[in-house]
Computed example of a mutant assay.
Amino acid sequence: MENTVGDFLRSRRARIRPEEVGLPSHGRRRVQGLRREEVAQLAGVSVDYYIRLEQGRGGSASDAVLDAVARVLGLDDVEAAHLRSLTRPSRTAAVPRGRQQVREGTRLLLDLMPGVPAFVLGRRMDVLAWNALGDAVHGFSARPSGEANAARHAFLDPAAREFYPQWEAVAAETVAYLRLDAGRHPDDARLAALVGELSVRSEEFRRLWADHQVRQKTHGVKLIRHPLVGELDFGYETLAVNGSADQLLVVFTARPGSPTAQKLALLASWTAEGAPAESAPAEGAPEREAPAAAD
């Protein structure tokens, strides 16, 4: 059985050089980075206590202890929150069995933003809904049934490496976000199945998953090589959908007058020439007719 908290802590102490925390680095060291007893000493806890924490038996650890360990290991805010999730997992919230539902008001909001590519990202990196320009950029509606998942697309679609010129960065970001999701929802069987599928089918995913990186998806840049208009250089902003747990509104932006903005305008005009594109329906809602393809 995987000891996630132990693997995470070992990966983090392995990246700390002793001299970085004021310890001598000379002499033979059997482990890379800090030893468990060194972390315990610097955090002000007993060695036995820290060992129990690495063994996944630290459910009663106080905030002060976890904060001290996070300080010694140089964890950022996201990693420190991840450590708390792993150490004291919450198992009270119900895990949705199927795809999450998207409120009608959220789908309407997507359609009222015709000038920017936008979509709703849910649990396990499922893409739940999108607007016309979001579809024109990412091709969500053209993917096979069940493939509207950002992680599957990144690792299992042969065209993904062409679509993302900076594929290595996209892949690392994707796995780090899934790791964060897994820490928050340890009982999610569908997430475990997704991780298992990607681990079996992608060597790159297995390598990145074993690295135990965690990262929030808040904002950043994304370079896309579109099959029709060429390279698109986006910024993106990620906003929580209040009232809909674990749903994020992802909006791609381009500076006015930039080459990317001009190409977006072209894509928007092509989309407008066909039938109005609709966002993806919520679970249980009737399927809507796909937009006509542009000539």
Rank of each mutant, 00 (worst) to 15 (best):
A282V: 05
Q32D: 04
G115L: 07
S85M: 10
A64D: 15
R88T: 01
R255Q: 14
R84F: 07
D188V: 05
T4V: 15
E2M: 15
L108H: 01
G59D: 00
A136M: 07
I16G: 07
A80N: 01
Q100P: 12
S11F: 00
Q247M: 15
P276L: 01
G22V: 01
P117G: 09
G257C: 08
P291W: 03
P256M: 14
R17M: 06
M113L: 14
V127S: 02
H212V: 07
P256K: 15
W167A: 10
R201A: 13
A129F: 08
P96F: 06
V102F: 09
F205K: 12
R103H: 00
V65T: 14
V170K: 04
D181E: 07
R91N: 08
P24K: 11
A172T: 02
A68D: 06
R36F: 04
E38D: 00
V65L: 03
A70V: 10
R190D: 08
V195R: 03
L266Y: 04
H153N: 01
G27N: 11
A70C: 09
Q213G: 15
D7T: 15
L239D: 01
A171V: 11
G284L: 08
F155L: 04
Q262D: 03
D135M: 04
R57Q: 13
P291C: 15
P286D: 11
A277F: 03
V102K: 09
T253Q: 07
D126Y: 08
L23N: 05
L53E: 00
M113E: 01
D63T: 14
P259I: 01
G243I: 11
R107D: 02
A81E: 14
A176Q: 00
S279Q: 03
A148S: 12
E203L: 05
E278H: 14
A268D: 02
D7Y: 09
R36G: 10
R88G: 00
A193P: 01
E37H: 14
P144T: 13
R84E: 00
G22M: 10
A254V: 13
V250G: 11
L223S: 06
Y50C: 12
Q262N: 04
A61L: 05
K263F: 00
F140G: 09
D295F: 08
D188T: 10
T174I: 06
L108F: 02
